[in-house]
């Protein structure tokens, strides 16, 4: 579904991605692990069109999308939930969701109802400014806003970052639900334990390069990765 080939993205002279290749299969959850500064967020921003790659190709359903601007990539069915959430702080929760549906033609009331059924907290706070929500609620809103565009592929950049354990549980429950309903997901996570419960394929990125690719079984087998990302206990 998504193919990234030999991607190089640089900030000035510093290459944050030094030739990354990966693939997301239709209907799968694919997870990218890696330490801070490895280039995970750069990868997500490049796929979403916020950053321009210096080299390499990004194909979504066979169509190159590397030269498109973010709104055009959303139109093709790829939506990013960014790392710092980026909700519209001065707009209400409902207006945030309307903004997420900007590209939709025709009515989308059904989707709003579905979203509110999935995120009851957002329904309670529909007329509240998004800036007044808690961190967990803002994360839910960022996911919900991305879903309003009906993405075929959802990119999620560290959705559990800085959230309380119970909220993290809820986020991963929602990720599993979305997957069951047919959305493909590319997930960046530091929380490898949680990711192991939902993802079917893993990539490890270190210093701008892919250093591991495999299924959850082979990830847990790998001695070095186990020590670095899962602690000493076997997953």
């Amino acid at each position: 579904m998504l193919r990234v080939v030999d991607l190089v993205t640089a900030y000035g002279k510093i290459e944050a991605l030094k030739g990354v290749s990966l693939e997301v299969r239709e209907g799968s959850i694919t997870c990218v692990l890696g330490p801070n500064g490895a280039g995970k967020t750069t990868l997500m921003l490049t796929i979403a069109g916020v950053l321009r790659p210096r080299q390499g190709a990004i194909e979504f359903r066979g169509e190159p999308i590397a030269a498109l601007s973010p709104h055009a990539i959303v139109a093709r069915g790829v939506a990013l939930v960014p790392e710092n959430r980026l909700v519209f702080a001065h707009m209400t929760v409902l207006e945030n969701l309307h903004a997420g549906a900007y590209q939709r033609k025709g009515p989308y009331e059904n989707d709003l109802e579905k979203i509110f059924a999935r995120f009851p907290r957002l329904k309670e706070r529909a007329s509240q400014d998004a800036g007044t929500l808690s961190g967990g609620e803002q994360q839910m809103l960022a996911v919900a806003r991305a879903l309003m565009s009906r993405p075929k592929l959802l990119l999620m950049d560290e959705p559990s970052l800085g959230l309380a354990p119970l909220v993290v549980e809820e986020i991963f429950r929602i990720i599993a639900e979305l997957h069951r309903d047919g959305t493909s997901i590319l997930l960046v996570e530091q929380n490898a334990h949680m990711a192991l419960r939902v993802a079917q394929h893993f990539y490890l990125i270190e210093q701008g390069r892919v250093t591991f690719s495999g299924d959850p079984g082979s990830l847990a087998e790998d001695e070095l990765i186990r020590r670095a990302y899962l602690g000493s206990a076997r997953a």
Binding site: V50, A75, A79, M91, G100, Y102, S149
Partner: peptide, 25 residues
């Protein structure tokens, strides 16, 4: 209006607006 929502989204955060499918340009 739909256009108004887009305008206020761009004022609030151009980056988030683009990621929501709104063309800032």
């Amino acid at each position: 209006s739909r256009f108004g929502t887009a305008v206020r989204a761009v004022i609030d955060s151009p980056a988030a607006a683009e990621l929501s499918g709104i063309s800032v340009s």
